[in-house]
């Protein structure tokens, strides 16, 4: 059984509220960094569970059930912390992958521009080479002389 002073318990409820808001802001930051809704939905569900724990802690605290309030507040804090950590990881991962994709996309665009330039300016020479190779590969047909 956890025994804490009444002041400490009400502090835990306040900490639970702050942690909920911090986790919420972590999710918003992860969204800005490019994390997908599908990845963030489980975190939102967890955050709603943490919110329920925090509300239960608040109700119990108002009813004078200090140990019950403390227990719910701690559960809420743990869950909010997990959500904040997971959201931060998802955000960083999304940002790295987004930077990689951007660099790759622009590199492809520049390489395509180089090849296109060559294709446009050297088109005549390329066709000539192709034509010569075709000619070299062609079979020579000899006509029989008709007497």
């Amino acid at each position: 059984m956890i025994i804490q002073p009444a002041l400490g318990q009400s502090t835990q409820v306040l900490v639970a509220k702050q942690d909920l808001l911090q986790a919420f802001q972590s999710i918003q930051k992860a969204e800005q960094q490019g994390a997908s809704n599908t990845d963030l939905l489980p975190l939102s569900i967890q955050l709603n569970t943490a919110l329920k724990y925090e509300e239960s802690a608040e109700i119990l605290s108002e009813q004078g059930n200090a140990s019950g309030a403390y227990s719910y507040a701690v559960q809420s804090i743990n869950l909010s912390t997990q959500v904040a950590v997971a959201a931060e990881a998802l955000g960083n991962e999304a940002q790295n992958s987004s930077s990689y994709r951007t660099i790759l996309a622009y590199t492809i665009a520049i390489v395509a521009a180089v090849f296109s330039t060559i294709a446009v300016l050297e088109a005549n020479r390329i066709w000539r080479i192709v034509g010569r190779r075709r000619l070299l590969k062609a079979k020579i047909e000899y006509r029989k002389k008709v007497r």
Binding site: A105, Y106, A109, I110, A112, A113, V120
Partner: peptide, 12 residues
């Protein structure tokens, strides 16, 4: 090259 690069990067 500059013209094509501008077109391709804009599309990207």
């Amino acid at each position: 090259f500059m013209s094509l690069a501008t077109i391709f990067t804009s599309a990207t």
